[in-house]
Design a protein around this nucleic acid. Sequence first.
DNA 1: GAGTAGGTTTAGACTCACACCAAATCAGGA
DNA 2: TCCTGATTTGGTGTGAGTCTAAACCTACTC
Lengths: 147, 147
Amino acid sequence: MQGITGHELSSRKAEYLKYIHMQGHVVKTTDVAAHFSIAPSTATKALAEIAKAGYIEHSPYHGVKITPIGTDYARFLIRRHRIVALVLSRYGLEPGEACREAKKIEQCVSKDLTNRMCMSLGHPMMSVCGEIEHDHCCCCPSGGPER
Amino acid sequence: MQGITGHELSSRKAEYLKYIHMQGHVVKTTDVAAHFSIAPSTATKALAEIAKAGYIEHSPYHGVKITPIGTDYARFLIRRHRIVALVLSRYGLEPGEACREAKKIEQCVSKDLTNRMCMSLGHPMMSVCGEIEHDHCCCCPSGGPER
DNA sequence: GAGTAGGTTTAGACTCACACCAAATCAGGA
DNA sequence: TCCTGATTTGGTGTGAGTCTAAACCTACTC
C-alpha cells in the first residue's frame, strides 16, 4: 500500500475493482458486465488488465478473486471516495449529492492529497456515505488515527 | 453563460482556451503550439474544434480571437480553478500546491458545484492564485456577490 | 457418457481525444 | 516576383473503452 499513488488504474477499472472488493467473494464476468451495463467481452478485457496489474486473480471461465494488493488498493479507493465526499459535504452538499459529485472528482485525487485532506479533517471516522477506515492509512502507520 | 455546465470542452481544449483568453489579443497557432509544447498541426486541429464550438474565431493563417461566448467560458474556467484552489488551500496545501492540484481536479468540477462552493465560501474575492471575479457568476445575477 | 444451453473468451472493429510527421499551401518581406 | 517561414491538410498512431460475432468451455440433463 505504501506505493499507491491513486492513479495505478484508470477510473473505470478502479470502479470495477471497488465493485469486486465490495462483493466479498468470487465475482463472475457476467456480474461485472450486468452491474456496469457493459458487454461481457468488455468485462473480460478489463478484468484481464486488472489481473495483469496484480489486483485480482482471474480463473478463466470461473471468475475473479481479489488479491491482497487489490484489497489494499480497493480500501484506498473507498477511503478516498469517502474523504472527498466528506469534504464536499462541508460546502453545503447533501449526502447524496456529495457522494455523487465525489464519484466524478475522486479519480483526480492522488493518495497524497487524500492523506492531506484526511489529516486536515482530523482523521474522521465517518463520512456521508459510510465509515472511513484508517488502519492502512499511510498517514497513520501504527494502524489507526494518530491523534 | 447561463448554459455552461463546465464540460463543454475537454480539459486540454479548456487549457488552450484559457491561454488564448489570458493573452488578451489575437493568438497565433505557433504561440499555442509553443506554449503547450505540441506540434503546430496539433494546435491547428484543436483550435479548429474550439472554433467550431463557437468559443474562438479562426482566420486561417492569421490566428484566433476569442468570442464573447469564449470569454464568458474562459472566465468561468478561471473562476473555477481559483475556487478549487482556494478550497484545497483550506486543507493545508500551500498556495503553489493548491494551484497545481486544482489543475488536476478542476476539469471534473461542474459549474453547479463551483457555484455551490463559491456560495459556501461566501463569494471570496481572492484565491491563492489570483482574484476571483463574480460579475458573471450565475449565483450572483445582479453583477456581484449577493451579500 | 453424449448433447446442449448458456456463460465466457477471443478476434476484429469502432469511437474519441490527443498527438505526430510529411506534404501542400499561404502570407509577407526582400 | 520570389522565397522563407508560418500554417494547414492529410494520413497515422496510441490508449482507453466499447461493441458484435464467432469460438470455446462448463456443467447440467437425459
